[in-house]
Design a protein around this nucleic acid. Sequence first.
DNA 1: TAATATAGTTAGGTACGCCTAACTTTGCAA
DNA 2: TTGCAAAGTTAGGCGTACCTAACTATATTA
Lengths: 149, 149
Amino acid sequence: MVQNRQLSSSLEDYLEAIFNLSKKGKVARSRDIAEILGVARASVTGALKLLNSKDLIDYQPYGYIKLTDKGFQQAQSIVRRHNIIESFFINVLGVDKQIAEQAACKAEHALGPVVISRLLKFTEFSTNYSEKGTDIVADFQKYCRSKGV
Amino acid sequence: MVQNRQLSSSLEDYLEAIFNLSKKGKVARSRDIAEILGVARASVTGALKLLNSKDLIDYQPYGYIKLTDKGFQQAQSIVRRHNIIESFFINVLGVDKQIAEQAACKAEHALGPVVISRLLKFTEFSTNYSEKGTDIVADFQKYCRSKGV
DNA sequence: TAATATAGTTAGGTACGCCTAACTTTGCAA
DNA sequence: TTGCAAAGTTAGGCGTACCTAACTATATTA
C-alpha cells in the first residue's frame, strides 16, 4: 500500500469500471476496462498497478482483478455519486439517458458532497412534490416545450 | 495562430480569469491571474503563450494582456456557462455562494450544452413557478430542513 | 500437444500542467 | 539617476495519463 489521499479522476474511473464489470458476475478483465474507458490496454495495466499499490484492488500480473474491501467501499461511493447525478439529469431535467450518463461521468469528479447531497434531495423532493398534486417535473417539461428546448 | 480545437479546462480557466480581471476596468496582470488560479507566476506565462498562439489574447513578453475579439467571445461563453451553473446551485439548490462558486468552477468544464441549457431553463422555470403561487424553491428549502440537510 | 490467436505486460515516448530557481525587465523612491 | 523591489520570464524538472511497438503469457482449437 502506498498512499491514501484522494484518487485522481482517472483512477476513480478505472475503479468504477472494475466495479461495474464485477457487478455483472463477470471477473473484470483488462480488455473490457480498456474498452469501457476508451484507452489502450497498456494504460489499464498502469492503472491497475496504481490501484493495487493503494490497496484498492488485489492484482498481480496476468492474474484476476478483484476489489479489496476498501476498494469496494470506495467504488460504491463513486457509483453512488454517479447515480445521484445521472438520476437528477434524467428524472428532473429530462435529459436523454445517453447524454445524462456521459455528463454524469464527468460531473461526478467535479461536484463536492454538498452539491451532491442537494441534488439527491432535490430529486427526492420533486418526486414527493408530484405526489401532492403539483407535478414539477411534468410542468418543467411543458415549460421547456413551450420555450422550444 | 496555432489551432482551433477545444480549449483545455486549464486554458479556459486562464481565459476566464483574464476576462474577469478585464471587466473590472483593470488590465489583467500576470500576478493577479496567478493569485486567482492559485498557480505560480511561471505557469501563467506558459498559459499566456498558448492563449496568444491560439489568437485568444494579444500578448507579448512584458506587455499588456488583452483579449482579442475571438478571445472575448469565448471567454463570455465560458463565463455564461459558469453563471448558469452557479445560479442554479445558489437559487435552486440553495447552496452557499462560496461553495456554489467553487463547484461551478469545476462543473463548468464537465457539463455539455444540453445539460447547461436545461439548468438555465430550470432556474428560470422555478422562478416563474414561484410567481404562480407555488414556491418550489422555498418548499425545497423546507423539505431540506425537515430532512436535516 | 503444437500452432496460433488473444490477452496482458513492458519499455519508451509524448503532451500537459504544474513547480522551483535563477534570470531579466520594469517601475518607483531615495 | 540609480538602485532596489516587484513583476515577469526562462530553463529545467516532475507527475499524471495517455500512446505505440514489441514482447510474454494464456487459451483455444485443429
